[in-house]
């Protein structure tokens, strides 16, 4: 007994002891029994009792759902670039693989992504996605441009052969005379010569342009896609002349002479001069002499413009 206990017989104890408790009312047990009989059965537990074998499974399932949900949210945030906006670096798959395997990935071109190989569709564009500021990057850019260019040349040559064959077949079907093997060989030789000249000029232009760009890079200048592409594409007058040449070639000789006469003298001379440079000779009256059996595709003026870096 501690000193704090209420000592029996003390005034406080006597006062506390004077607290009689009334008995339960009569019929209390009967009322409880009646209430128990009318009482609805208790509801089952909302949760299964813990500690059973199912607890681990439930916990594991919740962890799996939480992990999957977090991964989905994180992937969505990374895919939409949200993490970049809040300065959280997201490593690329190559970097993660390198950290796992310890192997350095093959160095890719830093600024250019060629959209196709040489055998792919010839008109696929070369996509620029960055700046060029080193000679290696510039070399890689021109290497890819050359790949695309060679692919175009090859596809163009195949298309020319195919159309020549089709033209011969049409003439044969129409009962018209077809060129002999010797004539055909001469025509093909002429096409090859024209194309060789054209490619040589394109090579010269590309080389000059490349030298100029290399000098810029060596001087520390940073090149963009526009620096390479724009100078050729901006030559709108050359493109106009090329289109006009195509239209002229599709005319009859009489229509062609009339169209040339209607041109301003300066434009007419420039057009004739360009045609001469491409290996054709004009008529004495200013018109262009084009073989009647020559298909438009065989002439160099109809070829697509030189590959533009």
């Amino acid at each position: 007994m501690s000193t704090n206990d209420i000592i029996a017989g003390s005034p406080l104890a006597r006062r506390l002891d004077d607290y009689p408790v009334p008995d339960l009312s009569a019929g209390f047990a009967d009322r409880v029994l009646a209430a128990a009989a009318a009482r609805a059965a208790p509801l089952p537990d909302l949760r299964r009792p813990g500690g059973g074998e199912g607890r681990g499974w439930r916990l594991g399932r919740r962890l799996a759902i939480a992990t999957f949900g977090f991964s989905a949210i994180a992937s969505a945030a990374a895919a939409t670039g949200m993490l970049d906006r809040i300065d959280i670096a997201v490593p690329s798959a190559e970097r993660v693989w390198t950290s796992i395997t310890g192997k350095q990935p093959v160095a890719a071109a830093p600024v250019l992504a060629a959209a196709q190989s040489a055998d792919a569709a010839p008109k696929a564009p070369v996509v620029f996605d960055g700046q060029i500021d080193t000679p290696e990057e510039l070399n890689e850019a021109f290497r890819r441009i050359e790949d695309v260019r060679q692919g175009r040349i090859k596809a163009r040559r195949e298309r020319q052969d195919e159309r020549i064959e089709q033209a011969i077949e049409r003439r044969r079907a129409a009962g018209l005379p077809v060129p002999s093997a010797e004539e055909l060989a001469r025509q093909r030789q002429r096409i090859d010569e024209v194309q060789a000249i054209r490619q040589q000029r394109a090579d010269e232009r590309i080389k000059a342009r490349r030298d100029e760009l290399e000098r810029k890079v060596e001087s520390g200048e940073v090149l963009t896609r526009e620096d390479i592409v724009r100078p050729l594409r901006d030559d709108q007058r050359a493109m106009d002349r090329r289109e006009r040449m195509v239209r002229l070639r599709q005319m009859t000789p009489q229509q062609r002479r009339e169209a040339l006469r209607n041109l301003p003298p300066q434009q007419r001379r420039a057009l004739i001069e360009e045609y001469r440079n491409l290996g054709n000779a004009p008529d004495t009256d200013g018109a262009v002499a084009i073989p009647d059996n020559a298909t438009p595709e065989t002439a160099p003026v109809e070829e697509s413009p030189p590959p533009q870096p």
Partner: peptide
């Protein structure tokens, strides 16, 4: 068993009544 409930009341209800009343 209602008899069991009556027996439990007989055994424990008085002491419970004291606690509850005080």
């Amino acid at each position: 068993d209602p008899a069991a409930l009556r027996e439990a009341i007989t055994l424990y209800a008085a002491s419970l009544q004291r606690i509850a009343f005080r």
